[in-house]
Amino acid sequence: MGLKPKVAIYDFTDCEGCEVEIISLRERFLDLEKQVDIVDWRLGQERKSFDSAQDKYFDIALIEGAPITQDEIDTLKWLRENSQYVIALGACAALAGIPGIMDQEKRAGWYKKIYPSTSSGQVYKPKGIDALPLSAYVKVDFAIHGCPVNAGELERIFEELLAGKKPSYRPYSVCFDCKRAGNECRIINKKICLGPITQGGCQAICISGGSPCYGCFGPREEANVEGLKQALKKFADEEEIKRYFTMFYNKNEK
C-alpha cells in the first residue's frame, strides 16, 4: 500500500444502510477520509480516478450488498482483479443478508406474483439470479460484519488496515457483549437467540433494545451450531428455530 491507500466503495443489491453508517461516523469519518484516497464511490462522489500505471487500481475495495444480477457479479469479479484487498461491508456482502432469505428455486414463482404481466401482454424479465454472499464468486479478504455494520467496529477495522495489519475478528461471541451490556440471557428465558454462535463486536445492540439476535455478525470460529440447536429444541419448535437460522444464514448454513 502506498502512503495513502486507494479505496473504492461499491454497493450491490442491498439497503445501503452500511454506507449510511460510514457517513454517520461524521467527524470520525473526516479523520478516516484524510488517511485514504477514495478514488471511486458512486454514492458519495462523481470523481473516479483510476491510475492505470498501477498494478491494481485499488488497494482496498469495500463492497456492500449481495451480487444478485449478472452485472453485479461481473463488477465483483472486476473489482477482485483490480484490488489488493476485497472487504465485505455488512451482512448482505458477507452472508447474503436479508435478500438471502429468498431461496433461488422460489424466485421464478415470486417474479410472476410480484411483477405480473400486463393486460397488453408485457412480461417482466427478471434480472436477479440468486442472492449470495461475495464469497460465492470471489475470494474475500475480510468481512466487516453487521446489519448494519457497527460504527465502532468499522473504525477499529479501518485503523488496523491503515496500520498495515491484517484486521482481526473478535475472538468472542455476542454472549460476551450481551453480558457486558447487562442483558438477561434470552436462552435462559426460553427465547431463541443466535448470540452464542455469533461473532461478537456488535455490543449486543439488538438484544439490548429488546429484539432477538438473528446472528447478523456471522458465525464465529468453531461455533457449536448443533449444540445450540439442541438447546433451543428444548423450548422451541423446529419451524421457529429454522426461521432464526434462515434470517441471515440461509445461504451459509454449514
Binding site: 449481495a66 451480487p67 444478485i68 435478500p99 429468498m102 415470486w110 434470517m247
Partner: peptide
C-alpha cells in the same frame, strides 16, 4: 433502474408478524 430484485413481498411470506 438496475437494482437486483430482493423480492421482499415474497421473503416476508412464511415469517411471523413480529419479524
Amino acid at each position: 433502474i438496475h437494482e437486483g430484485e430482493r423480492l421482499f413481498e415474497g421473503l416476508l411470506v412464511g415469517r411471523t408478524i413480529e419479524e
